[in-house]
C-alpha cells in the first residue's frame, strides 16, 4: 500500500518535472528595453508580419532545428500555427522579397549564445536553459 503511494507520487513528480521542462521561454538580449512581450507581438515577428520590436527597433530572429520538439511547441503556443504552416508563410515572404526567415540554430545553448551576443536578437529556449546572459520576456 505504502509502496503504491510512493510510486504514484513519484509518477506525479515525474509528470510535473516533464511539464515544467517543456515550458518554452522567449528570450531577448538584456539590453533590449522591452520588459515583456505578448504572444501576439512574438507571433507578428515569427510570422513575418513585422520585423521590429514594439519600440520600432530591428529584430534578429533565431529558430530551433526542425527536428527539435521545442520548435513545434513554440509555434503552436505563440502563433497558433504549426511549424510547417509557419514555414509555408516564410516561403511566401522569402520568394517575394518581403522577409528573411529566422536563423536556424542547433540547440538551446546556441540560441542563448546568439541572443546574448546581439542586442537585436530574439529566440526561444527551454525554461531550464535560461540564465542571466539573456532576458526572459514571455513564458509559453
Amino acid at each position: 500500500m505504502r509502496s503504491l503511494k510512493t510510486i504514484l507520487s513519484l509518477c506525479a513528480l515525474t509528470l510535473a518535472a516533464a511539464s515544467a521542462s517543456a515550458e518554452v521561454v522567449v528570450i531577448v538580449n538584456p539590453k533590449n528595453p522591452a520588459a515583456a512581450l505578448t504572444a501576439e507581438q512574438v507571433a507578428a515577428l515569427y510570422l513575418g508580419n513585422t520585423s521590429t520590436f514594439p519600440d520600432g527597433s530591428a529584430a534578429a530572429l533565431a529558430d530551433q532545428p526542425e527536428s527539435a520538439g521545442i520548435r513545434g511547441t513554440f509555434y503552436e503556443k505563440a502563433t497558433g500555427r504549426s511549424a510547417a504552416q509557419a514555414k509555408a508563410t516564410w516561403a511566401r515572404l522569402t520568394f517575394t522579397g518581403k522577409g528573411t526567415p529566422p536563423k536556424e540554430l542547433k540547440s538551446d545553448a546556441d540560441v542563448k549564445a546568439f541572443v546574448a551576443s546581439d542586442p537585436k536578437a530574439i529566440g526561444y529556449v527551454d525554461s531550464s536553459a535560461v540564465d542571466g546572459s539573456v532576458k526572459a520576456v514571455l513564458k509559453l
Binding site: T52, G56, S57, A88, A91, R92, F95, T96, G97
Partner: peptide, 28 residues
C-alpha cells in the same frame, strides 16, 4: 528606415492578394 524599404528592378506586381507568390506552390 526600420519601417520603409525600397526596391528597384524586376519585380512581380502585387495586383491581387497572392499575385507575387503565385508560383510558390508550397506556400499556397
Amino acid at each position: 528606415t526600420q519601417s520603409t524599404s525600397l526596391r528597384a528592378g524586376y519585380l512581380r506586381a502585387p495586383t491581387f492578394m497572392y499575385s507575387d507568390s503565385v508560383f510558390v506552390g508550397y506556400a499556397n
